[in-house]
Every structure is written in structure tokens, then in C-alpha cells.
Deep mutational scan, measured.
Amino acid sequence: MQIFVKTLTGKTITLEVEPSDTIENVKAKIQDKEGIPPDQQRLIFAGKQLEDGRTLSDYNIQKDSTLHLVLR
């Protein structure tokens, strides 16, 4: 499925993911596309910070959802 990741600069990254993918996995995909190390990434969805060990389906993230990427 496709999800979107919006950065603070207003750029939107499109990712191909599975509901069973972990947040860690998603961060690795963002690193592949953007070169941002996962340890600098914070992903936010519906006002919640997403934890590495959980999956997209744990957070009820569905296709065409938009996550927000904050760098630390």
C-alpha cells in the first residue's frame, strides 16, 4: 500500500509499505529515499509519536495515510 510522509519543509515522500511493516522498517525506507538516518527520525501520526517496534497496523495506519516526519 502507499503512504505519504510529510517533512517539515513541506516536502511529501511517497512510500510503498505493508500494514505489517514496523515503524523501524518505514524509517529505513525513508533513509533509502532521503538519506536521513533512522535515529534522527521521529514519525508522528494522529498526534502520536510512533514507536520503532510497533507496526503500521498497530496504529491503524491505512493506505494513503500521511505521517509527519520530525528530525531530532
Rank of each mutant, 00 (worst) to 15 (best):
D32V: 11
Y59Q: 02
L69A: 02
R54K: 13
V17E: 01
T12E: 09
R42Q: 08
P19F: 14
K27Q: 03
D21F: 13
G53N: 08
L43M: 05
E24M: 13
K48W: 15
S57H: 06
L71P: 09
T66S: 06
Q2A: 09
V5D: 00
K6E: 07
P19M: 05
I30M: 06
I44G: 09
T7S: 12
H68V: 02
G35Y: 06
L15A: 02
I13V: 13
G10W: 09
T22Y: 11
K29V: 13
Q41K: 02
V5S: 01
T9V: 12
G35M: 08
I13W: 04
D64Q: 03
E51F: 04
V17K: 00
K27E: 01
T9F: 03
T7Y: 13
F45P: 00
T66H: 15
L15R: 00
R72K: 15
E18Y: 10
R54H: 15
S20G: 14
Q31W: 05
S57P: 07
L67Y: 01
P38Q: 15
E18F: 12
Q2F: 13
I61S: 01
I13G: 02
K29N: 14
K63N: 11
N25L: 14
V70P: 01
K48V: 14
Q49T: 07
A28P: 02
G35V: 03
I44N: 11
T9Q: 13
V26P: 00
T7N: 08
D58V: 07
T14M: 10
I61P: 01
D39V: 13
S20I: 11
L69Q: 02
N60D: 12
Q31R: 10
L8I: 07
D64K: 03
F4M: 15
F45E: 02
D39R: 13
G35P: 03
D39T: 14
E16N: 09
V70S: 07
Y59G: 01
R72Y: 11
L43S: 00
T55E: 04
V5G: 01
E34Y: 06
T9N: 14
I30D: 00
D58Q: 11
T14A: 14
Q62P: 09
L8K: 14
G10H: 15
